[in-house]
Design a protein around this nucleic acid. Structure first.
Length: 809
DNA sequence: GGAGTTCGCATACC
DNA sequence: ACAGGTATGCGAACTCC
């Protein structure tokens, strides 16, 4: 029979020693179905020049590997003309019985004299399957298949595929999403009980609990105990039959907790289609996989892909939801948990429901991005939502190699990673040292996707790199690499790496236009996905875990970045402008009375000289810009400035205002002062703001909330060498029974006391200790405003002192 | 035991 | 371990006399 089918979830199993890929998705009628496709696992042997392929085939054909009851043989071979790192090679494609043994078979073949390399045994089977069979996630296919009794599952039909072909008219797949959230009596996984579980999806809003509260909303369903509640949870999820089950931090909390409590309660947590409990893959962070339902931990996707573009200071559900979907969830006072009144439970139920409701909204908002990454990178949504940018870049390459007949490079082994890391850094970009001051009428130019456009324009990659150069190669600028001055060379003929990147850059441009013409979630996601991929590609080549790692290409990219920034700066200076600042790919300079038209014409002239796809863009015109000195010095501070555009919109970079590890009092004051100065063009009015805050501080009139300092704990407490204030605060938290974990924001204030170290005077919220006026004055307020007022020749410390004298008398 | 310096650490910019 | 280098600036811990 034939039907339309969209694969959503992928996994594989063995049958008769062979690999089968199981695709779970929807058919044209919207029913969940399972399609099993066969897969012929294989890897490549790359032969040395002049090797006798037939002889090798003969020699290896008898090889087999025994693993328990499984015997893997060489099933067949093909002798092919392929490419490896851009060069023509003769290769043998070796088909084996089972992918899991491909590595062992490759090892068994060993380092025969005539074999140069063995490749692709280390590419994960699902990636290989998608790459070779072309059955890509979230695309529609026509499947010719027959029902397969043996593989039928409880709830869904299963078919054995005979032929899978892409549908020419693609429609967008819209998943059925279910969000969930649990509340527990203890944070530590499995230690406490699960008090309630909420589920929110289209047509479902439920809180399941075994706690009691009269007058709870009718979304609450009561059960006798935790076990009954868990059983019903499984039933509801499976009856709903979502494509995506999503939580926030659910890989690290909700799902493992559910599994742990299900085990204790002897409940079969048979979510999904196989009747088995979720499994957890090993790794830095365990990933909870449910067969036939894509379990999406939104936190992980946001953390890996979006966090650097978010304003949120933490990645808490509340803050992220506020920024992305403009929704603030209601709060619940967890302190109450120890001593709950019945009515408190009603509040807790409501809170729990809200968490799932917000998670669902967030999932709906983010789905277009997941979808686009799936389309571009061609990996299943489960992986797309967990992989980091380096892996996305790499998978995008892997899935496109066949267009170039390229055999994939291998993953670096442990020792190779060590060697790469041991090499240390290479020189990066150039930052112009500004002269402190307040400037009027500035222009900022910046290069669009500078690193990517340089990689494309100069073909910088592992495969095109040459130590010596020669005919058909061009040279890099001279640069220092491992304390030796050198030039390196790259082939003129575009390699697959820069070709793929140029496609990404082109598409980014195209989809940015599309987005500007038609602003919606989908067009934005598409444009954004290509931007992220383009931006991460430079970092990828310098990343020690990359298959296509190239220290030379990465270092050369930066040498080109420096060259073009310097060259452009020279042009700006020679044209009679005064450069004020520049960082990596941007240049800010004074308009010097020139008109916008003249400046745009000048920009055009620079562009006509730029090679390849490099492009300089107008960032903006600014009516004012403030640059300050480094603390305790007269030299200008880099990466620290304020600009105001001609609409009065202020852009603040690097200042304490934008740093989350400074207290609110400091940040708000500095932000107010900067705002006023940028608006007025002088410091007079803003001095009053400083005086007011000093008065409040000395008068002990400041809200404690504004004095809390927040610093992230970035490793386990025991691993710290230096006992900084936040480490001491974290220890204090532990002593008072609050569990602390890596990644947490530690919150404290500095109080009065005799201790020499700041850490000796660190207190947690709620401790009844007076705040240390002197500390907040000398270590918070003054450092943040001194160098700003210095620009105007005003001594902030004297002003503050004057204010405190007045107060004293 | 105090001053000066280095080091560890967090966070930002691009 | 899961893109890169450049930069500021705090506070602790060390060095030196």
């Amino acid at each position: 029979m034939e039907f339309e089918f969209v694969p959503v979830d992928y996994d594989y199993f063995d049958h008769g020693g062979r690999n089968y890929v199981r695709l779970i998705g929807r058919n044209g009628k919207g029913e969940k179905v399972c399609v099993v496709d066969s897969y012929e696992p294989n890897f490549y042997l790359i032969l040395k020049d002049g090797a006798d392929a037939d002889k090798i085939v003969k020699k290896i054909s008898k090889i087999s590997v025994e693993k328990g009851s499984r015997v893997t043989k060489i099933e067949k071979t093909e002798i092919l003309d392929k490419k490896y790192l851009g060069k023509d090679v003769k290769a043998i494609r070796v088909y084996v019985t089972n992918h899991k043994d491909a590595h062992d078979v490759a090892s068994e073949i060993g380092d025969m004299d005539e074999i140069e390399k063995r490749r692709e045994y280390d590419v994960p089977i699902i990636t290989k399957y998608i790459k070779e069979n072309g059955v890509e996630p979230l695309k529609w296919y026509t499947v010719d298949a027959e029902a397969e009794e043996e593989w039928m599952m409880d709830d869904i039909d299963c078919f054995r595929a005979k032929k899978i072909s892409l549908v020419s008219e693609q429609k967008k797949f819209v998943p059925k999403i279910l969000a969930y959230d649990i509340e527990t009596s203890e944070r530590e996984i499995g230690k406490g009980e699960i008090l309630m579980v909420s589920l929110v999806g289209e047509g479902i809003r439920k809180v399941l609990t075994w706690k009691k509260c009269k007058g709870a909303g009718d979304y609450v369903e009561f059960f006798d105990d935790e076990a009954d509640m868990l059983e019903k949870f499984v039933e509801y999820v499976n009856d709903y039959g979502p494509d995506v089950l999503t939580g926030y931090f659910s890989d690290g909390f909700d799902l493992p907790y559910l599994k742990a409590r299900a085990d204790v309660n002897k409940v079969n947590l048979s979510l999904g289609v196989t009747g088995r409990a979720p499994s957890f893959t090993r790794g830095r962070i365990p990933s909870g996989k449910i067969a036939g339902i894509v379990h999406v931990d939104l936190y992980r996707f946001i953390d890996a892909v979006f966090s650097q573009y978010l304003q949120s200071e933490t990645l808490s559900l509340n803050e992220v939801a506020k920024e992305l979907v403009g929704e603030e969830k209601e709060d619940f006072d967890f302190v109450k948990l120890g001593n709950m009144k019945e009515s408190d439970w009603c509040d807790f139920f409501s809170y729990n429901l809200q968490d799932s409701a917000v998670t669902l909204k967030l999932a709906e908002k983010i789905w277009p991005d997941v979808y686009e990454f799936c389309q571009i990178v061609k990996e299943p949504a489960f992986d797309i939502t967990r992989d980091r940018m380096a892996t996305h870049v790499e998978n995008h390459i892997l899935h496109n190699l066949d267009r170039f007949d390229e055999i994939a490079e291998k993953r670096p082994m442990h020792n190779e990673i060590g060697e790469r890391r041991a090499k240390g850094k290479f020189e990066g970009a150039f930052v112009f040292e500004p002269k402190p001051g307040l400037y009027n009428d500035l222009v900022m130019f910046d290069f669009t996707s500078m690193h990517a456009s340089i990689i494309v324009s100069f073909n910088l990659s592992k495969a095109t790199f040459s130590e010596d150069g020669g005919k058909g190669f061009h040279e890099s600028p001279e640069f220092d690499l491992d304390s030796r001055k050198r030039k390196v060379y790259f082939a003129d003929k575009p390699g697959f790496f820069s070709t793929l990147l140029s496609e990404v850059v082109d598409k980014r441009k195209k989809y940015k236009k599309e987005y500007n013409a038609d602003k919606n979630a989908m067009t934005k996601a598409r444009s954004n996905a290509y931007k992220l991929l383009a931006n991460a590609t430079f970092g990828y080549q310098g990343f020690f875990g990359a298959r296509y790692y190239s220290r030379e290409a990465a270092a050369a990219t930066l040498a080109f970045v420096r060259k073009y920034t310097h060259d452009t700066m020279d042009k700006v200076t020679n044209a009679g402008y005064t450069i004020i600042y520049g960082d990596t790919d941007s240049i800010a300079f004074l308009q010097n009375g020139k008109s916008k038209d003249e400046i745009m014409k000048f920009l055009g002239e620079i562009n006509s000289d730029l090679p390849g796809i490099m492009e300089l863009d107008l960032e903006d015109f600014y009516s004012r810009g403030l640059f300050v000195a480094k603390r305790g010095a007269t030299t200008g501070a880099k990466k620290k400035y304020a600009l105001v555009d001609q609409e009065g919109k202020i852009k603040i970079r690097g200042f304490e205002t934008v740093r989350r590890d400074w207290c609110r009092l400091t940040r708000n004051l500095q932000s107010d002062i900067l705002g006023k100065i940028m608006k007025d063009g002088d410091e007079k009015e803003s001095l009053k703001m400083l005086k007011d805050v000093v008065k409040k501080l000395k008068g002990r009139d400041v809200d404690m909330e504004d004095l809390m300092i927040r610093t992230q704990l970035r490793r386990p407490i025991s691993e710290y060498v230096a006992q900084g204030p936040h480490v001491i605060a974290a220890k204090k938290m532990e002593q008072s029974g609050i569990s602390v974990s890596t990644g947490m924001l530690i919150e404290y204030f500095v109080g009065e006391g005799s201790g020499k170290r700041v850490g000796d005077r660190v207190y947690l919220a709620g401790e009844s200790v007076k705040y240390d006026i002197d500390y907040y004055m000398k270590n918070q307020i003054l450092p943040a405003v001194e160098n700003i007022f210095d620009v105007f020749g005003v001594d902030a410390s004297a002003v503050a002192d004057g204010e405190s004298q007045k107060k004293l008398f």
